[in-house]
Nucleic acid binder design. Structure first.
Lengths: 354, 354
DNA sequence: TGTTTTTGTTCAAACGATTGAACAAATGGT
DNA sequence: ACCATTTGTTCAATCGTTTGAACAAAAACA
């Protein structure tokens, strides 16, 4: 009894964290009884449970997650790999993933690839090392080789891709229908009377950008519009890239009357160049972007764009992970979740007023 | 020998992860020798080290971080609590913190408070539970009570605050000089000939916003300008809040000739209202924001603002953490790191052309 | 050759929580 | 009153790695 009290007092006085062993000592029972009491084991009496909870509170007991994770073989950590946190799309996805997974007791470890393949591989290694229970990722632009992702699959933990995915990797995927989105944009521009529609595109090796390009080409064909190489420019889709591509387009002997940029940042670059050249939007050239970054709504003219439902994508990715964790055996099913995107028509492409 | 080979083959065939024990079995040595070989212990022979590394590679050995973290009492995880990931400032800070800490072998667990006190407390609990080695945080707007943060200090792990900090908590802090920034803004506006300068402010209970308010008031006094209650409006500083405050200012019998908004989002709201009312910037009303969000440079007119050096803040916060980890005993020193901010003058407040 | 030092490795106890099996005591059925 | 069941708890092994102490063998020194 004296020993118990003594221990108790010591622990009140110090900062040292208490363990189930300390609780056990105070109550004169074993650590395993404490562990079972805390996890509400049916064989533990209500009285003991109450006592344990009380003492745990007194000792300011905090379970050691590492110990339990080690024993259970489950860390309750999820890795999230994104190209860049400071884009509205990715940070919004991050926000939703974090929210949903937190509710289910998971913590999210964030890792940015900065669009670099090397950094992406390092991120994967670091996450696997940290024993994450799964990884949710969007590929870097640079990434062409997926063997590193096979490594994740080999570990037997769930891998969910979103936005920048890849068909070859047989894993769950959440994204929008890029092919269909291009059709919506071209249809809209044709409806506005445009006849020469340019596309500031992303690099074709990234699946989503390839699909946007194919959608663009197919949609032009559908409308019996000519497909000109000069009007299809692949690039990194940054603001600066958008500026350069727009300048190139303006130098053409036969200017386009519409520009569809595969990212809002590129669209913004194009918009700046158009304004600098006093070219009116949408009268002279109509402009459409992609992604619904917040700034598209408040620049002047506001930019028409595609809403990617980033919140929805984050939610679905998180739920896909949770589903995989719950059903570890099920091999197939689920997989691709393709959302229908929404075209938001704004000033930059609306010739009819409203 | 047979047993060894057998084990070896089994492990090549299955996905099951290998441990130091497996390596030990293959080589016929003990796990502790393997552990020491891997950590380059001086007492282990070069030959053994080479063998261990070779076998580790063959078996595709990945150390179990959980086990080593448990044993060492160090998780190499750092918690980052931010109000919202989808603001350029915070995601940029995040980016830099992640980059620097990754280099040093730390992973970053992200947690968003969504400006909610309750969520912030939950985040802290979750992070402490995960046994993070330290926490870097920026307080939610709602947070007035810091007892939860005391909990972190009580655990004995480093706590670093940035941007939204608090003097009462005796911890390291990284941020800009808000008081001084207000002075720079007011000085600039006065120089532009403005005489009635309004301030769309944040809530006074948050230290940074309070300092901006005091700086604003002191600067007005310095220039012998009247301080009018109608011109100082506290709010949440969202875009919508900025709109409302600007509308209120326009309804005044005696309109201001300059508006200083304590956030770029509020400044943007104000800008929209001014444009809708065909009020010219900077001729009729000059406008200055705060934070250098990217959009400030490409809206029209571009918005003058304060550059908070988000990358620098992230870097310093990460380094402060690393310093504390390296020097656990040192009680005082270091603490407040206050950066001098930079005023970026753009169209919205520049009457002189350029 | 005998003693000390160095070198390379093993031993064993951690780190803190979990869990099935074992066991004693209390309860129930007949 | 005897056996079966239920209840509450302890036992002991385990998760994978780390680390100081211990120990034997080899090397160095006298």
């Amino acid at each position: 009894m004296f020993k118990r009290l003594n221990k108790y007092i010591i622990f009140l006085g110090t900062t040292k964290k208490s363990t189930i062993k300390d609780i056990a000592n105070v109550l004169g029972i074993t650590p395993s009884a404490v562990s079972k009491a805390l996890s509400n084991h049916p064989r533990i009496s209500e009285k003991t449970k109450a006592d344990v909870i009380q003492v745990a509170k007194n000792l300011n007991y905090q379970p050691n997650h590492l110990a339990s994770a080690l024993r259970k073989g489950k860390s309750n950590l999820v890795g999230l790999i994104i190209p860049k946190a400071n884009s509205h799309f990715f940070s919004s996805v991050l926000q939703n993933i974090e929210e949903i997974l937190n509710e289910k007791g998971y913590s999210v470890i964030i890792s940015q690839s900065n669009e670099s393949y090397k950094k992406e591989c390092e991120s994967i290694d670091a996450l696997l090392f940290t024993q994450v229970d799964g990884i949710i990722a969007s590929l870097a632009n640079e990434t062409l080789n997926f063997s590193y992702y096979e490594k994740i699959k080999a570990k037997g933990i769930p891998l969910i891709l979103f936005d920048r995915g890849e068909n070859d990797l047989q894993v769950d995927y959440v994204g929008i229908d890029d092919y269909q989105s291009s059709h919506m944009i071209v249809d809209h521009l044709v409806e506005q009377g445009c006849k020469r529609i340019a596309h500031i595109a992303g690099y074709r090796h990234t699946r989503i950008f390839k699909n946007r390009i194919i959608g663009y080409v197919d949609a032009l064909e559908k409308h019996h519009l000519p497909i000109e190489n000069d009007l299809l420019l692949e690039g990194s889709l940054t603001l600066e890239d958008g500026r350069q591509k727009m300048e190139a387009l303006l130098k053409l002997p036969n200017r386009p009357d519409a520009v569809y940029a595969a990212s809002d940042f590129a669209a913004l670059g194009a918009l700046q160049v158009l304004k600098e050249n006093k070219i009116r939007m949408p009268e002279d050239i109509a402009l459409v972007g992609f992604g619904n970054e917040p700034f598209t709504s408040f620049v002047s003219p506001s930019i028409s764009t595609i809403n990617q439902y980033s919140e929805e994508i984050g939610r679905l990715a998180a739920e896909a992970f949770l589903y995989r964790i719950k059903n570890p055996k099920k091999k197939v099913s689920l997989n691709k979740m393709i959302l229908n995107a929404e075209l938001i028509v704004r000033e930059s492409s609306n010739k009819n007023g409203y």
